[in-house]
């Protein structure tokens, strides 16, 4: 088995490609560093000079507004120069290969590549081919991983619940296609959350999902009972008709989060969502905007977490 390609010979974080295989200490280091940056984002001058003179290339092979923007803000708050490349619309359509694109940008003196790609594992391929001083941060690859989202979810949970060792967390919805779910599950199991549940119909669960360390529920009411944290996943429009699911209505009826179902969870449960939300499909507006929802704080923490990741890999 190869060495974990994210860590350098000293065991330090060289790239952030996946939460899987990262030691607990490194997750703790990222979350602690993020905590120190939350203060920065609340100051009037929201900048620290940690990455001054460094260049961050946002390489988005798949369209994204939200994640790209938060990476951009995070890099700017670290005083880095940010270059946004919407590759979905440029070189890929001209037939340039992924590695050629990266080699060209590398010749322009990049320090960090923030990569989003529709194909699982693409950031690993890039990380294998970049120069030693260059760093790759995975901003979502296929169904595989979205480690900064997973980390911001972990940050949010730690912020509200303090300690992972007694938590019951339920992740609800399209786990099959979700890189967010995979990263969060790996983070939670690494940090010692005793019970992680996934709740979905069989068509939205990957085979052997139990091996990730989760307990499977098909009945949402049973799965929500006594949960401390409820994480809703986005259901893509294209999954809602065809062989995965018969209709959005039927899905909402069985797996949509309503106030009535949420009442089965613990009284102080928090509700999270990686966004963008489909109101009325996976989550009812009254819950999304209700007192248990921490969906907007997640976004704020996301900037601090991305600052932490970039400052650690390139610092």
């Amino acid at each position: 088995m190869q060495r974990n390609p994210q860590l350098n010979a000293q065991g330090e974080l060289q790239h952030l490609l996946s939460i899987e295989g990262l030691p607990r200490e490194i997750l703790g280091q990222i979350l602690d560093t993020a905590e120190s940056f939350v203060g920065v984002t609340e100051r009037e001058v929201k900048k620290v000079p940690l990455l001054r003179g460094k260049s961050v290339f946002n390489l988005f092979f798949e369209p994204s507004t939200r994640t790209r923007t938060t990476f951009e803000i995070a890099a700017k708050r670290l005083s880095a120069d940010v270059i946004n490349l919407n590759i979905a619309l440029s070189s890929q359509t001209k037939g340039e290969s992924l590695l050629d694109t990266v080699a060209n940008l590398s010749a322009m003196q990049a320090d960090i590549f923030v990569v989003r790609h529709a194909s699982s594992g693409a950031p690993f391929l890039i990380a294998r081919h970049v120069k030693p001083h260059e760093h790759v941060v995975n901003a979502g690859d296929g169904r595989h991983a979205h480690p900064t989202q997973g980390l911001l979810d972990l940050y949010t949970i730690r912020h509200y619940k303090k300690d992972f060792s007694r938590l019951t967390v339920a992740i609800i919805g399209d786990v099959l296609h979700s890189r967010v779910a995979r990263s969060l599950i790996q983070g939670l199991t690494t940090l010692g959350a005793p019970q992680v549940r996934v709740i979905a119909p069989q068509t939205l669960l990957p085979s052997g999902v139990e091996a990730l360390g989760v307990k499977v529920f098909h009945d949402m009411r049973a799965g929500l009972r006594d949960c401390d944290v409820v994480v809703m996943l986005r259901l893509q429009n294209e999954r809602m008709k065809g062989a995965m699911l018969p209709s959005a209505q039927e899905y909402f009826k069985n797996y949509g989060l309503t106030a009535e179902k949420l009442a089965l969870a613990r009284e102080d449960a928090i509700v999270m969502h990686p966004g963008p939300m489909n109101r009325g499909v996976e989550i009812d507006s009254s819950v999304a905007d209700g007192p248990h929802s921490v969906i907007l704080p997640q976004v704020t923490f996301g900037i601090a977490v991305r600052m932490a990741v970039m400052s650690i890999v390139a610092g």
Binding site: D141, G142, P206, S207, G208, V209, L212
Partner: peptide, 15 residues
């Protein structure tokens, strides 16, 4: 191969 590894790596499986 549709199985634990494909699930972990997020690769579409062939059962």
């Amino acid at each position: 191969h549709e199985g634990e590894l494909a699930t972990r790596l997020g690769l579409p499986g062939i059962p």
